[in-house]
Computed example of a mutant assay.
Amino acid sequence: MSTSFRTLGRSGLQVSAIGFGAWAIGGPFMARGKPAGWGQVDDEESVAAVHRALDLGVTFFDTADVYGTGHSERVLSRALSGRWDEVVIATKFGLTFDAATRTLTGQDVSPGYIRQACRASLERLGTDHIDLYQLHVGDAPLERVDELIATLEELVDEGLIRAYGWSTDDPERAAAFAKGPHCAAVQHNLNVLHDAPAMLTVCDTHELASVNRGPLAMGLLSGKYGPESRLPMDDVRGDSPQWMTFFRDGRPAPEFLAMLDAIRDILTSGGRTLAQGALGWLLARSGRTVPIPGIRTPGQAEQNAGALRHGPLDPAQLAQIDEVLERQVN
């Protein structure tokens, strides 16, 4: 498998094997009265991070209309100006928001709203098409799938999007979406501490890309956090919503810290940083994976792009990690 580029499922689009997750550069926003962003950001630094990633060979950028209630898309527009021919851009739809108050307000997967959201994202991004348009409602009803696919296929026919996918951790939903002719990917949680063999099987069966959110376990695999770490309350991890298993009450979950300590030496072999080893595990786990670590500084861009240089872990290292974590091999 190539260590630098991957094919984005059935779309045929070539992307860097490691992408750029743009949630953090959206800055603060709220959901159900709690922070949903990663704290304050410096837009100049965000633009510099995008430029550094591009210069180091990162070509896949993943955002969503709700990140900073539109701000992430606008920052990417500014950073990618004049360089659109170098990149593949992915964004998401389905969650509603009030940009004036930077607050999420609900969800809407109706055909009319999807069209409205698509055109709004195109305007914020400053481009004429979206390469990968992803449903952001992970538990959207299965009975809506045919209607969703029909609407997305119309957007493909109109040239507004090139392919689509679902951001969900449910293999049944991913498989249902895969019947759409231009469905190319599923975005799901996957990292060395949280394997997802059933979802990877769906990706193999239906020739979908596996776009990996949480590839560094929300930062835990960066090595920056220990038992005494406490995340600030303006950070989504600080209030630790229930779905965020890697942090609890604003602190790293002890059971995951213990797992990390057990495999640290394997991940950091060969001169890799901990994050580069974690990304190397993902590149080795499947030829379909495209991890999208969150990046908001040039230094983070350099570290994550360095994983492209090191490439995948080897099969023996994968087997050793499974053995240490007492994980069944799939």
Rank of each mutant, 00 (worst) to 15 (best):
L208F: 11
I149W: 02
K179D: 11
V156F: 00
T101P: 00
D55H: 13
V186G: 00
K179I: 15
A31C: 10
P252Y: 10
L231V: 10
H71Y: 07
R237N: 08
V41D: 00
A178H: 09
T101L: 04
C118F: 08
R296G: 04
A319P: 01
A120K: 14
P171S: 05
D43L: 07
G214H: 06
R237P: 06
G39R: 03
C183F: 14
N212A: 15
A90K: 05
T3D: 14
P293L: 08
L152C: 13
N330Y: 13
D195M: 04
L132T: 09
A176G: 10
K34I: 09
R74H: 02
A196E: 10
A305Y: 08
L208G: 12
H182K: 07
S222Q: 09
T297Y: 07
I130G: 01
S121E: 01
V290T: 09
P252W: 13
I292V: 15
C183I: 11
G311W: 04
E45Y: 02
R119W: 06
A176M: 07
G250A: 04
V202N: 02
D169V: 03
R115L: 08
R327H: 09
T289P: 02
G223H: 01
F20I: 10
L152F: 15
E154N: 05
S11L: 09
N330T: 13
V236D: 00
G26H: 04
S269T: 14
G250L: 03
D265E: 15
C183A: 15
T63P: 03
D235R: 05
Q40T: 07
A140N: 06
R230W: 08
F177D: 03
V156K: 00
T96L: 10
I25S: 02
I18Q: 11
R272Q: 06
H206W: 14
P252M: 12
I266M: 00
R285M: 02
R83I: 08
P298E: 06
A262C: 03
S210V: 01
L279H: 07
G294M: 04
L135K: 04
F20Y: 15
K34Q: 13
K179P: 03
V137E: 00
S121C: 06
F247C: 10
S210R: 02
D170T: 08
V88Y: 00
T151K: 05
E73W: 07
S2C: 05
Y133G: 11
A79I: 13
Q303L: 12
D169Y: 02
I266V: 15
A175F: 11
T297D: 10
V329H: 12
G277N: 00
L283H: 12
A184S: 15
R83F: 07
G37H: 01
M30C: 07
D261E: 15
Y67C: 02
Q320F: 05
T105C: 01
W23C: 05
A79Q: 03
Q328R: 14
L260S: 14
A209N: 07
L325H: 10
G33E: 13
A22E: 06
A36D: 09
G19I: 11
L13K: 14
V202T: 12
D62A: 04
P28D: 06
D98V: 05
A31V: 11
E73K: 11
N330L: 12
E323W: 06
